[in-house]
């Protein structure tokens, strides 16, 4: 009996390995197979934002990546395509538990801001509610890591923000000019009067013809990084803590001397240059190509900006 069990399992694994087409297809096959053998298990991922080795504090001057007195006025990002990394190196899809608030079945919003920070003459953005959890189910198994994308999947990225389910209906997380979501919204300053960095990650150079709104994932510059967090021991997936290390994310960032519009890589206003790059490269994305450290580059988004860096090892997200 036990032998048959192992045989079926091996068969399923080999089928999965043969169909190397798309991760999700593979996972469905495997998920279905495993479903017969064992039920799904709850996944509970907690994303703990830290700075200077301590728990993140919103709207409070803190030290980040060696820079003192950095105040965050926004800190939110979407997580999607969540998968667990199996002991055999394969991936299993995590189905998120839709709650009409922080999660749909495919996308979750992590939110570390409590709103109320007024900068300049502009009103305060954000909301009091926060969320650091991603909750879902996955086929039972032995897992060693987590993989996810920072952002909203391409086929959901151009929804009507007014009619979509929460958390895809938050006006503040929608980039109307580009008709897509802000995948990441980190905003911070050392002096609210002179230097606010608005780091908004989102797809650019998307199709401008065809369906309204554009539906496919053919934006030239996706800016949607895939993050892999690997552990060593079998993961306790019912209570997994992931540190989001702002010291690593802002490492090398030297844009505090002026207001920066990092949307994501280009400067739309004064100060547009390549100083946003470290915020991108630290999460595995290529930035803009600079001809020198400080010369403003106005050529727009480079062809490869927002695509995956080769040989990238993530150190921002870790167990």
């Amino acid at each position: 009996m036990k032998n048959i069990f192992i045989l079926v399992f091996l068969l399923l694994v080999s089928i999965a390995n043969c169909t190397q087409s798309k991760d999700s297809d593979t996972n469905k096959t495997l998920g279905l197979g495993l479903g017969l053998l064992a039920s799904n298990t709850n996944v509970n991922l907690t994303f703990n934002l830290t700075a200077d080795g301590r728990a993140f504090q919103f709207n409070t001057p803190i030290t980040v990546a060696g820079q003192s007195n950095v105040t965050f006025r926004d800190a939110r990002f979407y997580v999607s395509s969540v998968k667990l990394i199996r002991i055999d190196g394969g991936l299993s899809d995590v189905t998120l538990t839709s709650d009409n608030k922080w999660q749909t079945e495919r996308v979750a919003l992590l939110d570390y801001e409590t709103g109320g920070v007024t900068v300049g003459g502009s009103g305060a953005s954000g909301t009091a509610d926060t969320n650091n959890r991603v909750i879902g189910t996955v086929a039972s198994g032995i897992y060693t890591g987590v993989q996810f994308e920072l952002g909203v999947p391409a086929d959901l990225n151009h929804l009507s923000v007014s009619t979509a389910s929460s958390p895809l209906n938050i006006q503040n997380m929608y980039w109307a000019w580009a008709s897509g979501y802000k995948f990441v919204k980190l905003e911070f300053f050392t002096s609210s009067a002179t230097n606010v960095t608005n780091f908004h990650l989102g797809s650019q150079n998307c199709p401008t013809t065809g369906a309204t709104p554009p539906t496919s994932g053919t934006c030239a510059n996706e800016f949607r990084p895939t993050i892999r967090v690997l552990g060593t021991t079998p993961l306790n997936i019912s209570a997994t803590n992931i540190t989001v290390d702002l010291d690593k994310w802002l490492d090398g960032y030297a844009g505090y001397s002026a207001n920066r519009t990092c949307m994501p890589a280009q400067g739309l206003t004064t100060g547009g240059d390549n100083s946003c790059n470290s915020l991108l490269t630290n999460i595995g994305l290529q930035g803009r190509v600079s001809t020198s450290g400080t010369t403003p580059q106005y050529s727009g988004v480079d062809a490869n900006a927002g695509k995956a860096l080769s040989n990238f090892t993530n150190s921002v997200f870790k167990f």
Partner: peptide, 12 residues
């Protein structure tokens, strides 16, 4: 709601 540039600047 746009932020670059801020026009009417509705944030909440």
């Amino acid at each position: 709601f746009g932020e670059s540039p801020i026009e009417l600047g509705l944030t909440n």
